[in-house]
Design a protein around this nucleic acid. Structure first.
Lengths: 143, 143
DNA sequence: TATTGTTATACTCTATAACTATA
DNA sequence: TATAGTTATAGAGTATAACAATA
């Protein structure tokens, strides 16, 4: 007993896991850095990107961001103070407030997304066929 | 002009980028959740894992964690208060303090690592040959 | 009664600047 | 004087609990 875990997992799997960890770390660093370029925190940038797709009730935002609804109030407050997001009433239910990006917010979101070079450049190293293989492998990994 | 970005990037690349984003999100969620299982924050768990490899000066920790040295004081304080980490003097330089995991900290780090099922289970879906392909593709992506 | 969003509170992480003790 | 670690401070994210407005 007391066998070290690494001896129970084959070296190839360990190597792949570490590579995935590196991808995750690099992706996150770049996202935080790019958000910072626009004076946004990571949470603010994620919410802005989310609202680019469609306006959402505060409650739904909490679900998507996987945080408590009380936190959403502050994040939307700060984005709203900068004119990137606005609160709208929901005609269907007067309890609900919809958060929606403004034109300015949409421009900021687009600039931010275009700045994320990691998402594009490393893939440029791979041929079309290799991307197909990578896509299929990742899709199977994610179930 | 004003061409939407998505029309400048081929759909396959977009798909792969989104898959990577999903991997990143799932990896992070699991890490935070597993850290929480042991009443640790993500930063505390990352530092604990880092110190499992070797004791480090506070200054070096800041570099590895990519944060300011002043933040390290608090994170080490909290881990030390729980007996997972200890500060040791550096015989070479009396200004330096080395942070090192305790036996208890090592046990916690091991349990935490073993709880990270995402890193193993999805790969179980792939054959040995497929893992070789995935490893090579990721390695080329990361340069 | 139940739900939506908010407020109040407390803790952690974060960066900046100033401080101390060594070098 | 330069460096290592800390302290002080302030802003932001997080969870919990309690609250007002609406359903």
């Amino acid at each position: 007993m007391a066998t070290p875990r690494t001896s129970r997992v084959d070296p190839l799997t360990v190597e792949v896991v570490e590579l995935i960890g590196t991808v995750v770390a690099r992706y996150h660093e770049e996202y935080e850095r790019e958000a910072g370029q626009h004076a946004l925190t990571g949470s603010q940038a994620r919410l802005l990107a989310l609202l680019t797709l469609e306006p959402l009730p505060m409650r739904q935002i909490a679900v998507r961001l996987k945080c408590e609804p009380s936190n959403v109030t502050g994040i939307v407050d700060r984005l709203e103070a900068r004119g990137l997001v606005e609160r709208r009433p929901d005609p269907q239910d007067r309890r609900v407030k919809l958060a929606a990006v403004t034109d300015e917010g949409r421009r900021t979101a687009r600039k931010l997304r275009d700045g994320l070079s990691f998402a594009r450049e490393p893939l440029a190293e791979l041929s079309h066929e290799e991307r197909v293989v990578l896509r299929d492998l990742l899709a199977r990994m994610l179930g």
